[in-house]
Simulated assay, not measured.
Amino acid sequence: MHRCRLVLSACLLFVLSCSPLAAQAAIGVAMDDFSYTDTSGEPTDQTAAHERRLAAFMAALRKDIEAGQRYRLVRSAQGGAVFKVVGGIQKTSTLVQWAKVAVIDVGTKTLVLDKLYSFRGDNDEAWERAQMFVSREVMAALDTPAPVALAVFDFELEDMTAASAGASAASDASYLAEVTGGVREALGQSGRYRIVEVGAEAGKAGALRDCGGCEVSIARKLGADQSLIGVVRRVSRTEYTFGFQVRDARTGAVLARGDSGLRMGADYSWKRGAVRLVTDRLIEGQQANDAPRR
């Protein structure tokens, strides 16, 4: 019997150690009770009923968050919270109530969700419907991956023509600035990336395209998850190619790269070509990979 208990315990430990939940700790979520305000001006005191319904609302919301065991609730005053959920409900008339709900990424101090909802009715059924809807919204926000902190360095020009026109240096710099700004804007607006301010730090390293990955350490110091460098190669005064490379800021591993491979247009079209290539490879390409397979 003693040996059976030992075998059973060993099997249980093996199963637990191999389970996904054991391999990955649950994500901490802090959530205090929502506030409640009644400005409807109704003569009947409904304080007790509202307190009971709010308590049921919060209990159901907490249950939904912990249901899949991916998340664990922690006290707001304690550490370990990756997200914080805050909210409040206000009754403005006999049949109309409003719920303000926000989900905050504690690490980046950014809003993952910030919405105002309205729901009709002030009975148990109305509160239950409201809770179910708010719960779906909160869970969707928690399950949305946090944007990748990306340091996008200024794009560089590699002039492969026989002779460079010194008079065009100012216009080249202007077009390169447009490329950098356009790529940063496109990536930032995608929601997949949070653009990290590079500042003058990168200028000290010289040409990043030839430094063997030195941009990685700069990106890491800036608090970025990844780095992106790009180059415009001038083949002639009216032809160019474009390339970029993304590295992991911790390991230096190349995560993505792209090259237009074609001689395209003139200098005033640099921005359009660069943004199109980066969008295809880093945004639309990733969305295709994320699409559910049938």
Rank of each mutant, 00 (worst) to 15 (best):
A170L: 11
A291H: 08
Q287V: 03
G212N: 12
V179S: 02
L113W: 10
L111K: 12
V86M: 10
D124K: 07
A141N: 10
I229V: 14
G88N: 14
R129Y: 02
N289L: 09
D33H: 15
A165N: 13
R129W: 04
D290S: 14
A102P: 03
K115F: 01
Y193E: 11
A288N: 07
A25Q: 11
S227E: 06
M31V: 14
Q189F: 10
S9V: 14
A126S: 14
R276V: 03
L113R: 04
W127K: 00
A149F: 03
G223H: 07
T94A: 15
A170K: 05
A77R: 11
A249W: 00
V148P: 00
G191P: 10
C11H: 03
T108P: 01
T108S: 14
A151I: 08
G181Y: 03
R293C: 04
A10S: 15
D45N: 15
K91F: 07
Q286S: 14
L8E: 10
Q78D: 14
F133M: 14
S135N: 11
A165Q: 11
S135Y: 08
I65E: 03
E239R: 05
E156D: 09
R294I: 12
L150Y: 02
L21Y: 13
Y117T: 02
E158H: 09
E158G: 04
M31T: 09
R192T: 05
S164F: 10
D143T: 08
S17N: 13
I104D: 01
F14L: 15
L176W: 04
T144A: 03
V106H: 04
S93D: 15
I89A: 04
F153Q: 02
R72F: 00
D105H: 09
L6V: 12
Q97R: 15
L187M: 12
R62L: 02
D248R: 06
A140P: 08
G230W: 01
A22M: 12
D124C: 06
Y268V: 12
V103L: 05
D154A: 11
I283W: 00
S171Y: 11
D114T: 08
L113N: 08
V179T: 04
L228H: 01
A151F: 07
L113K: 07
R129S: 03
